[in-house]
Design a protein around this nucleic acid. Structure first.
Lengths: 147, 147
DNA sequence: CGAAAGTACTTGACGTGTCAACTATTGACT
DNA sequence: AGTCAATAGTTGACACGTCAAGTACTTTCG
């Protein structure tokens, strides 16, 4: 509406691109996960985070970091995932304030199935669209932005 | 926990990087916008979208695209922004089903102030962290992923 | 023209996250 | 040891988005 206004500044679009790419990929990967495994991508991320930890267990506090939720949000998320039978709370032997969260047998199974779908999605929607060397380049650039 | 499991696949991390970069930047830009202008980044995005359209007005339906919300979500979002005095609904002369959304005077002012903050944030958290040519490269790669 | 299908938006019921206050436990300092 | 600040997690009240049904208007087509 006003060509001389600051709102036309082209710098704004770089962040816009990041938002677009993120939103579009997230949408597709989430849809596929829901469709084929019946699991929200968020839940898959939590299962993966726990499943990848060497002790097979993570304290609630660390899930707040991983999810970027508040502690209250994680309490409720774990409540639901526990009710669904994917995870379980376990007491921490050295600090009774801490709640560990570990995978149930069902949780492990669905994490395995989810991972197949997730990897296929990433292959299809990300890796296959980039040329040789571009994957490493993108990874490097995104790393610089996040740290 | 199990080195032979599919969950260790390194391909998973590329999407993880995108999530990290997006979450980290979004957080910082949103904090700054809230702090300095008292505006959620989401609202800023809507004001910008409307402010950049040549007619100075956008139909609700287009805001659903821009925000990736459902139509009901946009109705409520615009309700709140209208109550805050930043936008106003205007009837569409050619189709009485359509609601146009336009900026109020206050909305224009805050969009202007928000843009200064937003551009400064992008400069600081994105452009300044990348080397020469890397901005164009990142933009190109993100574009490929989103389309 | 008039009925039926389509489109734009709104609304009620509900799911899921935040915020701030609270409980329980631990660590630090005298 | 004994108090007091810090930390981990939960909870009630609330904010904000989705989903599906509803209203109003428009377009299509026999």
């Amino acid at each position: 509406m006003d060509e001389t206004s600051i709102i036309g500044d082209p710098r704004i679009t770089l962040f816009g691109r990041l938002v677009e790419a993120y939103a579009s990929l997230r949408q597709q990967l989430d849809d596929e996960m829901q469709q084929e495994v019946g699991l929200p991508l968020l839940w898959y991320g939590v299962l993966l985070h726990i499943g990848r930890s060497p002790e097979g267990v993570r304290p609630m506090s660390e899930l707040t970091e991983a999810t970027a939720f508040t502690s209250g949000g994680v309490t409720r998320l774990v409540d639901r995932m526990e009710a669904a039978g994917y995870v379980e709370r376990r007491p921490c032997p050295t600090d009774r304030r801490v709640q560990y969260v570990g995978l149930t047998e069902t949780g492990r199974e669905i994490l395995e199935r989810g991972s197949e779908v997730h990897i296929r999605g990433i292959q299809e929607h990300m890796l296959d669209r980039l040329g040789p060397g571009e994957v490493e380049e993108l990874d490097r650039l995104l790393y610089k932005l996040a740290h």
